[in-house]
């Protein structure tokens, strides 16, 4: 690591040498495949003829027109959106409640806190199987508590208090909220515990009630972390595959786009169409993010 004329040049060279393994592996396993995925989306690619497609292959828009004209795609996009928005909102709301409840010390807090974190830490395959078993119509424990067994994961529609509800989709959303509220809980609790105590104390002296303190003292200091969490959870949930695939396999009205991408890739062996749907999904995500960030940063400027 010598040979440079100045110390500054040496430092620059050393930096590049040390960072290069990181860069190489992200380039080879993430950036290059991404470009290839985009190429595949514009080609008629199947595993049989894949060697004939190349950089200079025949580019076409056929995959996109084929994918978009299938009604199943739009249904799955709407499912994805409902699943993501509801899952994100619920997991953050429950995480906030949990963080507020566990903010102050009490005997047994460590145990409760540990218990809250387990759904997030445990492997998704194990918890999905656990839910499947608990909700099983024949021998699941949840159904033994009910008068009439409900097929939570295989029934597309059902009636609840006289209203038609998408049973399986709601169950998958509940799973999402249950599994990811610990994530929001961790971040919000960390922020809560870093808040200066003086503000809260001053509000008490001024005679603010607990809900007033929450509304006017605590919440304004939490908005930023909640906004960040919303973005993170939205991005992760929007393209999530494991949870829905493991719970329902995409059946009973829960098919999300990522499960469709997987089915086109493996069962239908239609790589081009699969890639086209993945690209559409990514583009929709980017558009949502752009709108959100614009809206959000605009709102922040007004607040100042």
């Amino acid at each position: 690591m010598s040979g440079g004329r100045t110390l500054r040049e040496q430092e620059g060279r050393a930096g590049l040498v040390l960072i290069s393994p990181t860069l190489i592996i992200t380039l080879v396993v993430v950036v290059v495949p991404l470009l290839w995925a985009i190429m595949l989306a514009f080609q008629d690619a199947r595993l049989i003829n894949i060697r004939r497609t190349g950089v200079f292959g025949n580019y076409t828009l056929e995959n996109f027109s084929y994918v978009i004209s299938e009604p199943g795609f739009w249904t799955s996009l709407i499912n994805t959106l409902v699943y993501t928005v509801a899952g994100t909102a619920l997991s953050i709301a429950i995480g906030l409640v949990a963080a507020l409840a566990l903010r102050d010390r009490f005997p047994g807090r460590t145990v409760i806190r540990a218990s809250i974190l387990i759904p997030y830490v445990a492997p998704v395959v194990a918890v999905a199987f656990l839910w499947e078993t608990m909700l099983n119509p024949q021998y699941g424990i949840v159904n033994t508590w009910l008068d009439e067994p409900i097929a939570f994961l295989t029934q597309a529609r059902g009636e609840f208090l006289g209203i038609q509800v998408p049973v399986a989709l709601l169950t998958v959303i509940a799973f999402e909220a249950w599994r990811y509220f610990p994530f929001a809980f961790l971040f919000i609790l960390a922020r809560l515990q870093a808040l200066p105590a003086e503000l809260d104390e001053a509000a008490v002296v001024d005679g603010a009630t607990p809900t007033q303190r929450f509304r006017y003292v605590i919440m304004p200091q939490l908005w930023r972390i909640i906004a960040l969490l919303s973005v993170l959870r939205f991005v992760f949930t929007f393209t999530k595959f494991d949870d829905v695939y493991l719970l329902t396999g995409g059946g009973a009205g829960t098919e999300v786009v990522s499960v469709r991408v997987y089915n086109f890739l493996t069962a239908r062996d239609d790589i081009g169409a699969s890639a086209a749907q993945a690209i559409v999904l990514a583009v929709v995500l980017v558009v949502f993010l752009a709108v959100y960030l614009r809206f959000f940063s605009g709102g922040e400027r007004e607040q100042r």
Binding site: V30, L34, W36, A45, L232, V235, A278, L281
Partner: peptide
């Protein structure tokens, strides 16, 4: 910026080319 992009990047998009590559 690169790291943030990789962190947020959907795995399902990467799955397709990597599946094809590893098959080949």
């Amino acid at each position: 910026f690169l790291f943030l992009a990789v962190y947020l990047f959907p795995a399902i998009v990467l799955a397709i080319p990597l599946f094809v590559l590893f098959t080949m």
